[in-house]
Amino acid sequence: MNTTGPLLTVRDAVKHFRGGGRTVHALNGVSLSIAPGESVGLVGESGSGKTTLGRLILRLEQATSGSVEFDGHDVTTWRESRMRRLRPAVQMVFQSPYASLNPRMKIGALIEEPLKLHTTLSKDDRKKEVRALARRVALSEVLLERHVNQASGGQLQRASIARAIATRPKLLVLDEPTSSLDLSVRAEILSLLGSLKEEHGMAMLFISHDLDTVHAICDRVCVMYLGRIVETGSREAIFRAPLHPYTRTLLSAQLSADPRVTRERLPILGEPPSPLRLPPGCGYAERCPIAETACTTKAIALTAKADGDHSVACIKT
């Protein structure tokens, strides 16, 4: 097994959805790598391709082109039967626990399910492990005997996390895990994820449109727009010194809960272009306040900036 290189490497991933004579260009050449134990935030607006990328990494979607390497294996074309052996190592937490947890099963059984599928533990040991997992995510034992409709959104999201970490994955992909939750519950879940990250050294890909959440939990941030990563860098680089005009606009639209903090709001022009017809140049050009002719004619690659850990796809920066 690979111990020094990245845990996950996505190379030039392209995903098109075809149907009704039209093609949705969901991902248009995305490259990304995650080191063991690293937490990476994937931010961007609806339709930017965040969720598609997450699903592609888990092989819930098949890439149109490009490759996905996990732990040294190129899994891009692995069959499902072979993929299944990798599943314990890559787990996912979805946005809505109501949609992702089977309503007919008790919460205890839901947490036990991955142990049944992927371990050789005896029934008694599994039950013990389920109780330990419940304690780990601060889920009361009483809830293990309940069904999905008898628990709150926060409790269910804890159960989803317990289920996802049951097989001690190396990578956890979380797709908007806190966006349907109240603030205090969101804070509790982030606190839980923060401590899991420290204890287990689990890598995380955290998909969210909420910049505050990403800022709280991620070491590195990738900003997506129209199926491409337009900027990537350390949390500090992205939040303190964003370079891409889209990242700047996104950050300036973030509302601080402190009424004394007033950020200068950058204007937002128009709507994002349709992923049905990609513009030839930079995807953001037609909304960009500093765009020039060159931006609209040729595709712009992600280029490393001086310190190397900060890359941006913009010819004006």
């Binding site: 969101r186 923060g194 959440t213 939990i217 809960a257």
Partner: peptide, 30 residues
């Protein structure tokens, strides 16, 4: 929002500080 007086308002505002939450400080008793 700057000087909350009710303990619930204080807790709610503290919960908005997600960075603090991720490092383990709990705003409200769960």
């Amino acid at each position: 929002f700057v000087a909350p007086r009710h303990p619930y308002t204080t807790a709610l505002l503290a919960a908005a500080d997600l960075a603090a939450a991720a490092t383990g400080r709990r705003p409200l008793p769960p």
